[in-house]
Design a protein around this nucleic acid. Sequence first.
DNA 1: CATGATAATCGAAACGTTACGATTTTCTTT
DNA 2: AAAGAAAATCGTAACGTTTCGATTATCATG
Lengths: 325, 325
Amino acid sequence: MATLKDVAKAAGVSVSTVSAALNGTAPVKESTYKKILEVCKAIGYRPNRLARGLKTKRSDTIGVIIPELTNPFFPEVVRAIEHKAKEYNYNTILCDTDDDPEIGLSDFHLLIEKQVDGIILIGGVVKRDVILSSKKLPIVVIEKEYHIPWVSTIMADLMGGAYKAINHLIGIGYRRIAYITCIMEKDTVYRRFEGYKLALKDYQIIFDASLIKEASPDFEGGYKTMKSFEGNLPDAVFSYNDVMAMGALKACSEMGIIIPQDLAIVGFDDIDTVSFTSPPLSTVALPKQEMGSLATETLINSILNREKPRNVSLSTKLIIRESCK
Amino acid sequence: MATLKDVAKAAGVSVSTVSAALNGTAPVKESTYKKILEVCKAIGYRPNRLARGLKTKRSDTIGVIIPELTNPFFPEVVRAIEHKAKEYNYNTILCDTDDDPEIGLSDFHLLIEKQVDGIILIGGVVKRDVILSSKKLPIVVIEKEYHIPWVSTIMADLMGGAYKAINHLIGIGYRRIAYITCIMEKDTVYRRFEGYKLALKDYQIIFDASLIKEASPDFEGGYKTMKSFEGNLPDAVFSYNDVMAMGALKACSEMGIIIPQDLAIVGFDDIDTVSFTSPPLSTVALPKQEMGSLATETLINSILNREKPRNVSLSTKLIIRESCK
DNA sequence: CATGATAATCGAAACGTTACGATTTTCTTT
DNA sequence: AAAGAAAATCGTAACGTTTCGATTATCATG
């Protein structure tokens, strides 16, 4: 690989002049500038960013740690991050932890060793003390609140989303509204439930614990849970996520339940798929793209201008399709 | 950040001893080794990988360039790459080109400047001469053949997949089999068509050009194309990808065409969604996970052992669901 | 206990940049 | 034409590692 030294020699100037010319950090005569560019092109010079980073203490790289790329929520967020980062001339190192906090820990450390300029975390990929131990490094967290003063947080208003959904269902006449969910150990799970409860309360509908069912947050979980309602059907089913809702849909179709005549279903996430089910699912859409790019902007601002960390909650959007009349 | 020098000072030894101890590149007395480890832990030393990379000319990082993360084919491949890379202690810089070869070009160069140890390209994200200009750098390409001797290629046997699908359709009695596709300018598009044609030929079914329709490779494209068959329905429709097949499915449902009684549909890719459509779609599954990890293994072998480049074709799998009787 | 072998440790150079003070060249102005 | 200012250019010291030849400490052996 050609180095600055090679360029300098070929152009008949010193290394520092070449550096200054290329970076515009000092005035350089037009003619030598041209000559240098010429030489660069001729010998295919490319700066070694490791060396530059060592000197400047910037790597122009950010790290992104996510739990599982194949979960349909993430690709869009990651893509938005990558694009926004590129806009600011940053690269993105992507780490997928497989939802294992141990892996999250080692990923986190590795990113630090690689001298990333900042890190975006999505969900609870690392434990709290891990972040705490990394003082000074700019960090933005998506969809999880650590309440650490120097860490920014980007959230979707899940509670508001759930509220909107239930509010809509009640508004068009449904009363016995079931909620199928995964175990509520995570904050992101619980916040939806809060919205559900609040909406019921606002309409003075009494809370019926038998309408709340926990299962695994996948197709199977939704399917089985729906089946378990057999003989004692609710009016409507609100689901923790779209995939469970799709499972429920399948179960209904097998049980001869007509959607939305016999029962309404509303999902959460707005993954691509659900506009293609029959009937298409109503759902609460998360602003995935916006979350990704806002997180990145926040991170980069914090890297460059040392802007203060901020906590943003982005609003969700209820998308009405044919699964609730 | 603590450096080797800090460790050395605190441990009362020289920098080179610390380095040797940590890397095991020279014998170190047990007691000093312990002392060094102790100090490292105490002051939270982490090696600076930029500095290491500058010296060793390895970055322990690979680059991955893909066209569009939101295309359902890629997340699974990327995930497999990331996991396999991690297994060998490599990190992954992910670049999404938005299907723009200009962006692909600048991504490629940036990766080289960041001194990645190798690059995985998926699809035609960069032009041929870009790769040609990067002599010596290990490169593996997924789903595109550049025919460059020092570049490895990992392909799915798309032609074989299409063949299997058509073969199956013919076997269960379908004869007038339409093929809906996107414009056949790319190799990966054309290879499927080849399989289609070959299967027809093997069964001596005459090729009917009116059954081949080109459209945009999305839901809309499949939908419209299906509608255009109105009044002159084929027996079966084979689709370039699952998303188009889903569009076709939707059109059929609107046109009152019962699947699979009136018409069979077979898609391509096996994206998650299609097992949830009604009826669930038969499709040709690509070994996404395998493609990603094999590509990574190939790349890393080529980085480490200077193994010869290889060209692998992985077989696809026909998945029979209810969209063809 | 001297001797050589082996084990530990060290110092300095190098990797390719950037940054800064010093030096040289060029241009203005009188 | 001399003096001073401004513009170009240069040399060198870092940045935090690894590597390697050189040096010193430790040990068994005769």
